[in-house]
Design a protein around this nucleic acid. Structure first.
Length: 448
RNA sequence: GAGGAUGUAGCUCAGUUGGUUAGAGCGCAAGUUUGUGGCACUUGAGGUCGUGGGUUCGAUUCCCAUCAUUCUCCCCA
């Protein structure tokens, strides 16, 4: 006999957890639908060639690869095999991988179905993704993302819409959040102003950590990456600012930077006259890792909870280009459902009503009343009310125990006397009140 | 990829300065005379103390290795 176990970073979800997760998905889905997004589902696995090269080198390493079926070593690259060169061997022994996010599969879908789609195309997608990362708090190897993307429009109205979606969804989930907004062009402008446009990605990685390591930490990190002192001073000045306006002077020589500011202005312009329940804040240190972002970028942090971001997204000017369909701009956001779950758990914000599903439990005393109770429970179910009948008549203690443990609020006893009268004894488990009534009366009481 | 922590009953954990029958709480099963639960009481089942090796008269305890889980860094949802 072997001990069963789960792969690192994966979890089972028991009934209660699954219900809570469904609550999260339903809440987010409802908001997506309200904003006109349409559902999409794609396979768990994609061709490896679709996935590689889209997330940077780090991302490629975190892809789960699927071993080819059959005698794959026969077809393996002999040179790579003898040299034990894993990186090179992969392409000859694995042609499929598990999806790493939902955006790239979406881009693939758009390219393959361009003839059938009407642009701008708005889709939402709620599915698991897999990353071969080391698990830790709030980080899993299998987790769900809830994505909403618009593709085929440059309009910054969509950036504003996506902010509204974040705002509304988190308001409904009762998680106070800060929605952080920045623009890759602004970041590029900073690099230009500092004279290190060629070191753009080093710069963003470093300043992204401002929260964690402070200005001096950023400076040290930049210096370690070989950024010259003059540039460090410019960057330090930039990190101290709090509104986009303060960047204007710095961007006098950077067209890209100015364009980024103009985009941010527009997005905030759209939101100006609308009311939001959460704070939307420009954050110059927001960088985001995924290399395909080109314009506005978003990130959501739960206020007062120590947890990585629970949502993120941005605009990618040309995501479909690599699949042979250039010039199609898209913008999207993602909700990290598993982290949202952890936050809701920590804040104790799950609605209580989620645990009651079965509304009434029928109990019987012997075979005859058990049969009668079976008829009764059938009627209640026919009325659309979740109901159960205990499988064995007799021992009331056991049956009441079951009702209590399953959190069933009402029990209906079918005894001989009740059966003769065409009734059941209905007991409210919370108040202890009990009275006899017909099944029809029970149904109307439960429907009320 | 780097570093730390932890593996004892189904679950959460005690414990043994190395000594013969390894404990608790919760949970589970049965019962406290068989038409009324959540409480209480009684009784019971359940552990090769993660795995392999070493030291020792003797290891669950000390040492090494290994596996698993978890946390931090990198990066990310």
């Amino acid at each position: 006999m072997q001990k069963p176990g789960l792969p690192e970073g994966t979890r089972d979800f028991g009934p209660e957890q699954a219900r809570k997760r469904a609550y999260i998905f339903d809440t987010i889905r409802t908001v997506f639908v309200k904003f006109g997004f349409q559902p999409l589902e794609t396979p768990a696995m994609e061709n490896l060639s679709t996935l590689t090269g889209k997330y940077g080198d780090e991302g490629d390493q975190l892809l789960f690869k699927i071993l080819n079926n059959g005698d794959y070593l026969q077809k393996a690259d002999p040179a790579a095999l003898t040299a034990k060169d894993s990186a090179r061997l992969v392409s000859s022994i694995s042609k499929r991988g598990l999806r790493y996010d939902l955006t790239v599969p979406f881009a693939r879908f758009v390219v393959m179905n361009r003839h059938a789609l009407t642009f701008p195309f708005k889709r939402y997608q709620i599915q698991p993704v897999w990353r071969a990362d080391r698990p830790q708090k709030g980080r899993y190897r299998e987790f769900f993302q809830c994505d909403a993307d618009v593709i085929g429009s440059d309009s910054l109205m969509y950036e504003a819409e996506l902010v509204q979606i974040y705002d509304e969804a988190f308001a409904q989930l009762q998680i106070p959040v800060t929605i952080k907004l920045n623009n890759r062009k602004v970041l590029y402008g900073i690099a230009e102003a500092a004279g290190i446009a060629d070191r753009f990605s080093d710069m963003t990685v470093a300043i992204d950590k401002l929260d964690k390591i402070g200005p001096e930490g950023v400076r040290r990190e930049l210096a370690e990456r070989g950024i010259p002192d003059a540039a460090l001073n410019t960057i330090e000045k930039v990190l101290a600012i709090s509104s986009p306006d303060e960047l204007r002077a710095i961007f006098s020589t950077s067209e890209t930077g100015q364009a980024g500011l103009a985009e941010l202005d527009q997005v905030f312009g759209f939101l100006e006259k609308t009311s939001l329940k959460n704070e939307v804040k420009f954050d110059v240190t927001l960088a985001r890792g995924l290399s395909y972002y080109t314009g506005c970028i978003f990130e959501v942090a739960a206020n007062g909870v120590k947890m990585g971001s629970i949502g993120g997204g941005g605009r990618y000017a040309d995501l479909t280009g690599v699949f042979g369909m250039p010039g199609l701009s898209g913008v999207g956001i993602s909700f990290g459902a598993d982290r949202i779950y952890d936050v809701l758990d920590e804040l104790d914000r799950f609605p209580e009503t989620l645990s009651e599903t079965v509304r009434v439990l029928f109990m019987a005393f012997d075979e005859a009343t058990h049969k009668y109770a079976f008829e009764c429970v059938t009627k209640v179910r026919a009325a659309g009310i979740p109901a159960e009948l205990y499988p064995e008549p007799g021992k009331l203690k056991k049956q009441f125990d079951y009702a209590a443990k399953c959190n069933i609020p009402v029990v209906a006893l079918a005894g001989d006397a009740e059966m003769q009268a065409g009734q059941v004894a209905v007991k409210d488990q919370k108040t202890g009140e009990q009275k006899n009534m017909t099944v029809e009366a029970l149904i109307s009481q439960l429907s009320a």
